[in-house]
């Protein structure tokens, strides 16, 4: 049962990583790409870590895996804020779709 849950979490995590890459390829500007990477990839990592923690040998080993998540989140939050700030300072305007009749 736990084995199945763990495998499911790994697959869901892989799906979120794929969505992050897809967003990086398909979104039009650096700001929207940051959204894709900061949100989807981090959730993917969280699912993978949770999946592996379920089958870890001991409670301490499981907590060690889960400890990686807040560190990766802090890194993403700081780096994506810094990149967005830098992009704005460089004068990169956000992408807008051409207005057609809606």
């Amino acid at each position: 049962m736990i084995e199945w849950l763990s495998m499911g979490l790994l697959l869901v995590g892989a799906g979120f990583f794929f969505a992050g890459t897809l967003g990086l390829l398909r979104f039009p500007d650096v700001y929207s790409r940051l959204h894709a990477l900061a949100k989807a990839d981090n959730l993917g990592l969280g699912c993978v870590l949770a999946g592996l923690a379920l089958t870890a040998d001991s409670l301490a080993a499981a907590l060690k895996l889960l400890l990686i998540w807040p560190l990766a989140l802090a890194a993403s939050a700081a780096v994506s804020f810094a990149i967005a700030r830098r992009a704005q300072a460089l004068g990169i305007a956000p992408w807008r779709r051409e207005e057609r009749q809606e």
């Binding site: 799906g15 979120f16 969505a19 992050g20 897809l22 967003g23 398909r26 979104f27 039009p28 500007d29 700001y31 929207s32 959204h35 894709a36 949100k39 989807a40 981090n42 959730l43 993917g44 969280g46 956000p94 992408w95 807008r96 779709r97």
Partner: peptide, 24 residues
Amino acid sequence: QSLAGGVQVAALACRGRAALRPGF
């Protein structure tokens, strides 16, 4: 909220840029 954010951005990524209305 981060689960909601991930699901939302994944759905948007699947629909491509046509689904976006970005802005400041």
